[in-house]
Design a protein around this nucleic acid. Structure first.
Lengths: 242, 242
DNA sequence: CGAGGGATTGAAGAGTGTCAAAGAGAGTGG
DNA sequence: CCACTCTCTTTGACACTCTTCAATCCCTCG
C-alpha cells in the first residue's frame, strides 16, 4: 500500500528542468544552462530536519530547490516561531535576505532533499553578463511579495476549514505545475507545520481535514490526500468554481 | 484642541528628503536627484478615499509617497477584501506588480495625499545608467518580503491585544524614522482598516485599544494616540524590552 | 518488538465574532 | 452660524469558533 502510494506520487527528481520558478506565482523563465556558465552551482543534500541555513548566519548564497521540500521559518526574540512557506523543486530560497549581512530566517528540509547553492557574488556578476538574470530575480521577488499578500488575504478573511481548503488547492496546483497529480498527493509537512503556516493549532487542522473528508471533498489518511470534489473545495476556499 | 494636536503631529511635507525608503525595513539610500535626472517624476495628488491605481489596470509606473498616507488592498474574486499594508512618505508603491501586465492590488489614499509617479520604462532605463538603482529596487523588494513575513509571525503567534500593541509600536517606529514623535501621533486609518490589516474585527481592535488605555500603556482618544509605557507595549508585543 | 513522535478525537473553556445601541465628530446645506 | 446627517467609534450581551487539555491510536524507526 505504502509502496503503491509512493510510486504514484514520487517525484522524478532526475528529470531536467529549464524553468526557474518561484513560490506560487507561476514559472519564471530563465535559461538554466546559460546561468550555469557564470554561476558555479554546488549540490547540497539535506536530511529531513536539517537546515540549509539559519537566521543570523552570514548571507552568502541563494539556493534553488532541486528535489524534496523545505519549510521557511520566522523566529521571534522571545522564541515564538512561525512557518512562513513551503518550497519545492524549482523554488528559489534565500532571496528574502538579499541586501542583508545575515539570513533573516531558517530554512529546514521536510524530507531528504537537495538544493543547488548559487553563491550570491557570482549571481551578481551573472546579472551583468547574462541578459535578464537581474530582471528575473526582480520579478521573482515581486511575485513573492504578491504571494505573501494573497496569503494575508486568506488569513484575514477565511475561517479555519476554508483556510485548510485553500491550502490544499494551493498544494495541488503546485504539484500540477510540476507535472504531478493534483488529485492525489502526499503532504510533505506535519500537521504542526501546516497549522503554524495557517495560523491555526494542529488539532484544528486535523479536525478541518476530517470534516473535508466527511463532506467527501477529499479523502485523507494521515499525509495522503485524494481530492474528490475540486469544485467543493474551491467554493469553500472562496475561489470561483468556473 | 484639535488645532493643537495637528500642530504637534503634522508632517512637514515640504521638507526635502534624500532617502528612498520602503515599508518598515529601514531606509534604502538612493540619490533622489540623480534618479530624477533619468526618470521624469509627475506629482499626483489624491483626495482621501481616492485610488492611485486599482487591480486590473495596466501596470505603467511605480510611485513614491511624498505626503499623506495610503493603504494597499488585496481583493478576492468573491468580494473578500484585505488591507495588506499602509504606506507613508518615502515608501515605494507598485513594486509588487513588477513583471505583470496589470496591477495586482488597489492603493487608496487615507487622507489628502501626494505621490510621485515614476514611469516604469524610465525606471528600467535608469537602472542601466544610474549605478545601484537596480540593486536598490531588488533590496527594497527583498525587504518587503521580509516585512510581510514578520507580519505573518505576528498574525500566527499573537492574540488580538498583543497584535494591536505590536501594530502601535510599528507605527510609532515609522513616525520616528520620519522624524516625528513616536510618543504622540495620529492614526491615519480607520478602525476598520486597522482591523482588516490585523485580521480582526473593528470592535475587537476598539476593545484592545481601550484595554491598553486601561493598563496605562497608552492614552487613546479616537485616532489620537499617546504612548505612556513603551516597555509595557513591547513586552506585550513579544519584543525584548531592552 | 518496544519506544516515540505524529495524528485523531472528545470535552470544556477562553477569546473573538456578531448583533445591537448609543455617543462623538466631521461635513453639509439651509 | 447652526441644525442635521452620516460615518466612525465605543461598549454591552450573547453566540460560536477555535484553543486547550487529555486520552487514544497509528505508524515509523531503532
Amino acid at each position: 500500500m505504502t509502496a503503491l502510494v509512493s510510486a504514484a506520487v514520487e517525484m522524478p527528481a532526475g528529470k531536467p528542468y529549464a524553468l526557474l520558478a518561484l513560490a506560487n506565482d507561476g514559472g519564471i523563465g530563465m535559461d538554466l544552462e546559460m546561468l550555469r556558465q557564470h554561476v558555479p552551482m554546488h549540490r547540497c543534500k539535506h536530511a529531513a530536519g536539517q537546515g540549509i541555513y539559519h537566521a543570523g548566519q552570514p548571507f552568502q548564497a541563494i539556493y534553488l530547490v532541486h528535489a524534496g521540500s523545505y519549510k521557511t521559518c520566522e523566529l521571534a526574540e522571545d522564541g515564538r516561531e512561525q512557518v512562513t512557506g513551503f518550497r519545492m523543486r524549482g523554488d528559489l530560497i534565500g532571496v528574502e535576505s538579499i541586501g542583508l549581512k545575515t539570513y533573516s530566517c531558517d530554512v529546514i528540509a521536510l524530507e531528504d532533499s537537495e538544493a543547488w547553492e548559487l553563491p550570491y557574488p557570482a549571481v551578481l556578476r551573472a546579472c551583468l553578463h547574462v541578459p535578464d538574470v537581474q530582471a528575473r530575480i526582480t520579478e521573482a521577488l515581486a511575485a513573492e511579495v504578491r504571494n505573501g499578500r494573497s496569503w494575508m488575504l486568506m488569513f484575514g478573511t477565511l475561517a479555519a476549514e476554508r483556510r485548510v481548503a485553500a491550502f490544499l488547492l494551493e498544494v495541488a496546483a503546485r504539484y500540477a505545475r510540476l507535472g504531478y497529480s493534483a488529485r492525489h498527493f502526499i503532504l510533505r509537512m506535519s500537521r504542526i507545520d501546516m497549522a503554524s503556516f495557517l495560523a491555526l493549532k494542529h488539532e484544528t487542522v486535523s479536525r478541518a481535514l476530517s470534516r473535508l473528508d466527511d463532506l467527501n471533498y477529499i479523502n485523507v489518511q494521515r499525509r495522503e490526500v485524494r481530492v474528490l470534489d475540486v469544485d467543493g473545495l474551491r467554493s469553500m476556499a472562496g475561489v470561483a468554481v468556473n
